[in-house]
């Protein structure tokens, strides 16, 4: 007989957000161990999708829908997990504030980065497009993020990434956060020039980068 953990795992693999939420609610109602539900169910599912994607068997919609389903289910469990319920407790790999910089409305790349980070176990707060430095920092402060990730797709808005670093410097907050940047016209050199902590060319490299930065 399949356990609720298997059911959760399947819901994630299928990218079924409604079912993921329903199952998470059942975990709470039936007092199932939430940590096991996360490890065996949600993470188990997303890891399977991730592996299939790396092998070229799954595609972006599979990964992104799985990430959405996982996020929705985990949100339901957030309270019980925060209360330390369950075997050994659960903690995400780190909180990341993600957004597209001021003046820029490109968001496909950012959304993909967000989905892959989520599926790697990070808790991602996506603040959307056309966001000022203040807004990145306010959100990071509010949720206790360790990483701020800023996307820019235009040569004319790359300077907003620089503004973000400067804003942190000016407010003596630079040591509090790691800043990573990315997007089409950006480069490793640009990241170095503006004093960011990292740059990645693709979404899967962004995941590796965040793992390194928080190691």
């Amino acid at each position: 007989m399949s356990t609720i953990f298997d059911e959760i795992k399947d819901a994630i693999v299928d990218g079924d957000e409604d079912l993921a939420v329903e199952l998470a609610e059942r975990v709470i109602a039936e007092k199932v161990d939430p940590v096991q539900a996360v490890q065996l169910g949600f993470i188990g599912g997303i890891e399977e999708v991730g592996k299939a994607w790396t092998n070229g068997e799954a595609f972006l919609p599979d990964v992104m829908m799985a990430a959405d389903a996982m996020k929705a289910g985990m949100d339901v469990l957030e309270e019980v997990l925060a209360a330390g319920e369950g075997d050994g407790g659960y903690e995400d790999k780190g909180k990341i504030v993600l957004g597209t910089v001021e003046g820029d409305i490109h968001d496909i790349g950012k959304n993909i980065v967000g989905a892959l980070l989520t599926s790697a176990g990070f808790k991602v707060y996506d603040i959307g497009i056309d966001q000022k430095a203040e807004e990145f920092v306010a959100k990071a402060d509010e949720v206790g993020a360790k990483i701020i990730a800023a996307s820019a797709l235009l040569t004319t808005t790359m300077k907003s990434q620089k503004t973000l670093v400067e804003y942190l410097n000016d407010n003596n907050l630079r040591d509090k956060y790691k800043i990573i940047i990315g997007g089409g016209p950006t480069s490793a050199k640009w990241g170095e020039d503006i004093g960011a902590d990292g740059w990645a060319e693709t979404a899967d490299e962004a995941v590796e980068l965040c793992k390194q930065l928080l190691a």
Partner: peptide, 9 residues
Amino acid sequence: STASDMSTG
């Protein structure tokens, strides 16, 4: 208009 690469977006 064109197609996205569905592996990487």
